[in-house]
Design a binder for these strands. Structure first.
Lengths: 120, 120
DNA sequence: CTCTATTGCTTTGGACTCCACAGTATAAAC
DNA sequence: GTTTATACTGTGGAGTCCAAAGCAATAGAG
């Protein structure tokens, strides 16, 4: 990238590293329950809405709904709708979604062993 | 943990996995710029406030300030204050902070190669 | 025909979070 | 007296999160 002798940007890119470009998927993951949701969905081949809710009962319906459509926009989750009554919708990780989950899992597993994880 | 034959909780812990306990450090990381900040600080031995700002100019001063005190509370960053004029404060990762960063780096590096990373 | 059950959401209003921008404190240099 | 330097905190407005209720559609029970 840039070397430390050249000054290109006024504030960022100070010594060759600028984190500003990290706005895409990291922004999507930097929201409440986003990482947990990716992990949960990836632990199953596909999941229905109520099933996802059951695995993360602390998150509100509306938040889960929002996260899922953000994931869809980011291309890490697919939504498949079956026109039945009662309705059936299935969510699954895309290939990119699995790539995220793969890199997320070490963090989540380590976090689960921490003392500050609040149980229920 | 629990086996799938026993039903303990009404909604969570459906098939032996409940993500609700993941509230500690993951909550701290699930905020805007939190992951980037850990990465930035960990790339240096210690950093001053203005220096951190320079590496992440998209984040507001108040947000960086909040993130830093959340990190301090979570025990992943130390704040060292030198009583000089003008004031000098140094931030550095703790051992736990480095443990987080270690598990965060693969994700951030992969994210940086994605097409949806917005430049500037 | 009305009532209930089922699923996957959306809506609502109130609390909390993020932003840009301005202000605070201190003392030395000019 | 004004400027400079650093590390923040405060403010008001926009956006985000929550619990709880509501909606749409139809099958089956009574």
């Amino acid at each position: 990238m840039a070397d430390s002798t050249s000054q290109s940007s006024p504030t960022c890119d100070v010594d060759g590293t600028c984190y500003c470009p990290l706005t895409g998927i990291i922004n999507t993951l930097s929201r409440k329950y986003a990482m947990q949701l990716i992990s949960i969905i990836g632990a199953h081949e596909s999941m229905r809405f109520a099933e996802i809710e059951a695995h993360l009962s602390k998150a509100s319906t509306s938040t889960i709904s929002k996260r899922l459509s953000e994931f869809e926009n980011a291309g890490i989750v697919t939504r498949t709708q079956y026109d039945e009554i009662p309705p059936r919708v299935e969510y699954a990780l895309t290939e990119e979604g699995y790539a995220v989950r793969e890199r997320l899992e070490p963090l989540l597993e380590w976090a689960a062993t921490r003392s500050d994880t609040i149980v229920q």
